[in-house]
Structure formats: structure tokens, C-alpha cells
């Protein structure tokens, strides 16, 4: 009876399934990786030492550089500068983005891509879902550690308001996703050159030196406008800047830039992948 009431061709269940299916399979991948990583939380905690070493060095460095209390360097107080580095390093260590590029490179070099590309998902989105599952455990752990170390070593973030946390969290998530998309793009270069690692090093070092260790404002004025056009602005500078000095208009500007970067990055990623798989040779095995 109910069936007769529904017009032919408008089976809502089927339609829902069709629309939900693409997102659902990536959610399943995400959930399974998340559950897997929960088992290894203790292993993740072993990585805290590396993070602590970096933060310790930068606390000592900025302690030395700021000679008088209240001094400003590039508009940042000592506390803001140290918190900035802590936040960018938290994203760096907590996301372990180098694993993304490494996995893409290994899949292509080792031939595993031949199996993965035939699965009922898009390879690049599969990597992205897997990566998101990985950092969903790591990042909160590092965030907790950063909060404890920061509060003990330099005191609370000046002017921090809890109400701004959701906007900051969104900026961090978008920043990590944009970074992963670019790292996948670089990893996909392995279709043409055997080893894409050298390009990953340069990309990572650019992010590290320009956006992670220092805020963009510390560079000469002419360089700043250039850096604001690079991924540095959306991946590390933007989210960290909001944490140490939140301004609603800055937040909107950064979110808009992130939206544009994510869209452009995804288009680039899909087109590089499409061109790359055409070049694929399978040697058997």
C-alpha cells in the first residue's frame, strides 16, 4: 500500500543511499583508522620527547632574544612568540603530515597503487580520510601536552578567550587538510620521477622556516606580501596567529583564504592524479 503511494522513480531510500554512499565509505575508512590508532595511543605519547626538545630550544632562544620584559619583536610579546611556535609545532608534530607524502610515494614506487586505484573509492580521498583518522588521535594529545608545557613554562596565552576555540579549531582542521592535499600532490609526482621525497623536503622546510619557527611579520615587508600568497599563510601562520592574537576580521580573512586554497588544491590533486595514472606501468608481482 505504502509502495503504491510513492511515485515511480522517486525511491527516497535509494536516492539517499546514492547520495550518502560516497561520503559514507570515507567515513568508514576514517573510523577504522581512528579505532586502530586508539590502540597505539601509548606509542604516540613516546613522540612527546621530540616535541618537548623543540619547544625547550625555542623557549631558551626567545628568552635570550627578548632582553627586557614587555619588549615587542615584530609586534609579538615574548609569551605570544613562544605560544606561536608551540602551536605551529603542535600542528607539525600532531599531524605527522610527512607520513602522507611518504605513503603516496611508497604506493606508487612499490606498485601498490595498482591495487588501490581499482577499489571503489578515489585513491587521493582514501589517503585523505586515512590521514584525518590518524591526526584525530595525535593532535588532541599534542594539544593537551602543549597546553601543559606552555602554561608551566610561559604562562597562559595573553588575551585567550574560550569562546574563540571553535573558530580556531576549524582553522586548524582546514590548515591540516590543505597541507595534506599539497603533500599528496607532491607525492603524486612519483608517477613521473621515481622518488618525490626531495620535493617534500623543500616544501616542508619552507613551511618550517617561514611559517612554523617565526610568524610572517618578522620578515622584511616585501617578503610578507609574497608569503601571504603561499600555503604558509593558510597552513601554519593563520591558525597559530588566531590562537595568540584572535581578531574576528582576521579569522574571516583566514577562513576565506583557506576555502580558496582547499578548492584550488583539490582541483590540482585530482588533475595530477588523473594524469599520473595514465602513465602507470605495472611490472607484475
Amino acid at each position: 500500500m505504502d509502495r503504491q503511494e510513492k511515485p515511480a522513480g522517486l525511491n527516497v531510500g535509494v536516492l539517499e543511499k546514492r547520495w550518502r554512499l560516497p561520503g559514507r565509505k570515507y567515513r568508514v575508512i576514517y573510523r577504522s583508522v581512528l579505532m586502530e590508532n586508539l590502540q597505539y595511543a601509548a606509542n604516540i605519547a613516546l613522540g612527546f620527547f621530540g616535541y618537548f626538545v623543540f619547544i625547550f630550544i625555542f623557549v631558551k632562544l626567545w628568552d635570550y632574544m627578548y632582553r627586557s620584559p614587555g619588549e615587542l619583536i615584530a609586534g609579538y610579546s615574548k609569551e605570544q612568540m613562544i605560544w606561536y611556535v608551540m602551536m605551529t609545532e603542535m600542528m607539525w608534530f600532531g599531524s605527522n603530515a610527512s607520513a602522507v607524502g611518504r605513503q603516496v610515494k611508497t604506493d606508487i614506487r612499490g606498485g601498490n597503487i595498482a591495487y588501490l586505484m581499482n577499489k571503489p573509492y578515489h585513491y587521493t580521498l582514501y589517503i585523505l580520510a586515512k590521514y584525518t583518522g590518524e591526526w584525530s588521535i595525535r593532535l588532541p594529545m599534542y594539544a593537551g601536552l602543549a597546553a601543559v608545557i606552555g602554561t608551566v613554562m610561559v604562562g597562559p596565552v595573553p588575551g585567550f578567550r574560550l569562546i574563540t576555540v571553535p573558530a580556531m579549531a576549524l582553522c586548524i582542521v582546514l590548515g591540516l587538510t590543505i597541507n595534506a592535499v599539497f603533500k599528496i600532490c607532491i607525492g603524486l609526482l612519483s608517477f613521473w620521477i621515481e622518488d618525490s621525497s626531495p620535493f617534500q623536503w623543500l616544501y616542508d622546510k619552507l613551511l618550517l622556516v617561514v611559517g612554523t619557527v617565526f610568524p610572517v611579520e618578522i620578515f622584511p615587508k616585501a617578503w610578507q606580501s609574497f608569503f601571504k600568497l603561499t600555503p604558509i599563510y593558510t597552513v601554519c601562520y593563520g591558525p597559530a596567529k588566531l590562537i595568540v592574537d584572535f581578531q574576528p576580521e582576521k579569522c574571516v580573512e583566514i577562513l576565506a583564504a583557506q576555502g580558496l586554497y582547499l578548492a584550488a588544491g583539490c582541483i590540482l590533486m585530482f588533475s595530477v592524479y588523473r594524469k599520473g595514472v595514465r602513465k602507470l606501468y605495472v611490472n607484475g608481482g
Partner: peptide, 10 residues
């Protein structure tokens, strides 16, 4: 090529 790229880029 890979060898030289690894060395140069490092």
C-alpha cells in the same frame, strides 16, 4: 637522476 636529485635537494 634520483641520486642527483636527492643529493642536490638535500
Amino acid at each position: 637522476v634520483t641520486f642527483l636529485m636527492n643529493v642536490t635537494f638535500m
